[in-house]
Design a protein around this nucleic acid. Structure first.
Length: 445
RNA sequence: CGGAGCGUAGCGCAGCCUGGUAGCGCACCUGCUUCGGGAGCAGGGGGUCGGAGGUUCGAAUCCUCUCGCUCCGACCA
């Protein structure tokens, strides 16, 4: 993409309303525009990252054997009357009346609707296990939205629902979600720690929240800092292997890690003092097992092998997709701007043309751009007629992990400069080598 | 919802206290110079001062109401 033809309204000054780094940088880097309290338009740069995150979530869900579908944002109130949550949910639920005076609502979550779909089409134990998920906009009418997309009223969320014959199978689904979530966050360059959590309005006994440590997080967290070293890495996981999946979960949940809601001061004392940490975290996902809480009142049952009709065991599992942008930036920025991890960056690399209009630099940039494209990498090419300083500042702000700088000075000796946004280190090399290097960095991402 | 504040050009702000016909920086447009870390000079365009009512000869400024937004608290993926 040529920057001169793109739509990237960067701001030089800090918007007054943004209090935290991620919000500030998302506004300044032209990623979002607020339209009302807690409601945002996603401008092209922000939209690219949002789509990228969505894509990773989808890939990891499918890898775990889960099946995508799409449910609507608007739901009939009657479904929620069946589960009893129409009255329980309170002011946070946005209620709407249509022209026929029918009660509707903008979905804050989809347990009722997915259960409705299930009961309409599934009747036999032979159809289980089944896990369906979607990535859809939700609305929760927060009393006080804040921190940009971290705490918006409208937000994009992946929510998945498992249906199993037995509690044991449902707990395997729970574990499977935990492992797939760990992998999802790792691919985004995040360390998200599963912490025992409280269940809230979804209900259920088993639940973990995934927290990304950040000073600006909204939850207070207590943890053994050795959890930070745990990584899934490249290990091969068979999501159907109950023992393997359970073992991974055990590995990641044995060390002490809890939010203030479930904190146990006594147990925390047993953590060696050197590893005992108190901090703050951003919640980027949560998994629940809640048994028959919805299947029973809503009649989601299957017939078993011996002819009995039983309610299915369910769980629900969410990832805050739009919130993740905020969390990733909170964990990856400096005083100049964002530093995108390679897994989610809007563009893999930026090309800075230091002398727009100079035949040699223009040609070198075009060549690099084309060579990257031939390798399936779309660079953001700053071909604006701007001074070097302005181009560097923009690149630093929007945070592409790599920058190829092309100027007459370097070209004189056949070199361009490859710079890491994260380390700030630069290296001179030929254009072909720079393309090769970028290409190998993104191999497999 | 309780407490605190703010709405003046695309963004950041001054002006309001003490009414007199709107200003600064950035951005934008034109020209010249400059050109490896947010350039300089000169010229230029852009604002029903959130909205409605009121007081007054006169309101961005004073009064009343209203809408929106932000911050602290309780609530949350």
């Amino acid at each position: 993409m040529r920057l001169s033809r793109y739509f990237l309204p960067v701001l030089k000054e800090n918007p007054a309303e943004a209090q935290i780094a991620s919000h500030r940088y998302m506004l300044r880097a032209g990623m979002i525009k607020q339209q009302a309290a807690g409601i945002y338009s996603w401008l092209p740069m922000g939209f690219r990252v949002l789509r990228r995150i969505e894509e990773i979530v989808h890939q990891e869900q499918v890898r775990a054997g889960h099946i995508p579908l799409l449910m609507p944002t608007l739901q009939p109130a009657d479904l929620w009357r069946e589960s009893g949550r129409y009255d329980d949910y309170g002011e946070e639920m946005l209620r709407i009346t249509d022209r026929h005076k029918r009660d509707m609502l903008y979905g804050p979550t989809n347990e009722e609707m997915i259960t409705d779909i299930f009961r309409a089409h599934v009747g036999s134990y032979k159809d289980l296990p089944l896990t369906l998920y979607h990535i859809q906009w939700k609305f929760r009418d927060e009393i006080r939205p804040r921190f940009g997309v971290m705490r918006g009223r409208e937000f994009l969320m992946k929510d998945g629902y498992n249906f199993d014959l037995t509690k044991e199978d449902a707990l395997h689904a729970y574990n499977r979600h935990m492992v797939s979530y760990l992998r999802t966050y790792e691919r985004m360059g995040l360390t998200a720690i599963p912490m025992r959590a409280a269940s809230g309005p979804i209900g259920g006994d088993n639940t973990h929240e995934f927290l990304v440590l950040a000073q600006t997080g909204e939850s207070e967290v207590f943890y053994d800092d050795r959890v930070m070293a745990l990584k899934l890495g490249a290990r091969d996981i068979d999501y159907d292997d109950k023992d393997q999946v359970a073992n991974v979960c055990e590995e990641f949940t044995t060390l002490y890690a809890r939010t203030d809601e479930t904190h146990d001061a006594g147990a925390f004392e047993t953590v060696p003092e050197a590893h005992r940490k108190v901090g703050r975290g951003i919640e980027v996902g949560q998994i629940f097992y809640f048994g028959t809480k919805y299947s029973e009142p809503m009649g989601a049952t299957v017939v078993t092998a011996d002819g009995a009709r039983v309610p299915v065991h369910m769980g629900s599992h969410g990832i805050g997709v739009s919130r993740l942008l905020g969390a990733i930036i909170e964990a990856n920025h400096d005083d100049k701007g964002i530093i995108w991890p390679e897994g989610v960056t809007p563009f893999p690399v930026g090309i800075v043309n230091l002398k727009q209009g100079d035949a040699a630099t223009d040609a070198a940039c075009a060549e690099i751009y084309a060579a990257l494209r031939a390798r399936g990498l779309e660079a953001l090419y700053d071909d604006r007629d701007e001074r070097a300083g302005a181009k560097f500042a923009s690149m630093d702000l929007i945070g592409l992990p790599w920058r190829i700088t092309v100027g007459p000075r370097g070209l004189a000796s056949g070199k361009v400069e490859l710079t890491s946004r994260r380390s700030g280190e630069s290296e001179e090399m030929s254009a072909a080598d720079a393309v090769e290097r970028i290409s190998s960095i993104y191999q497999g991402i």
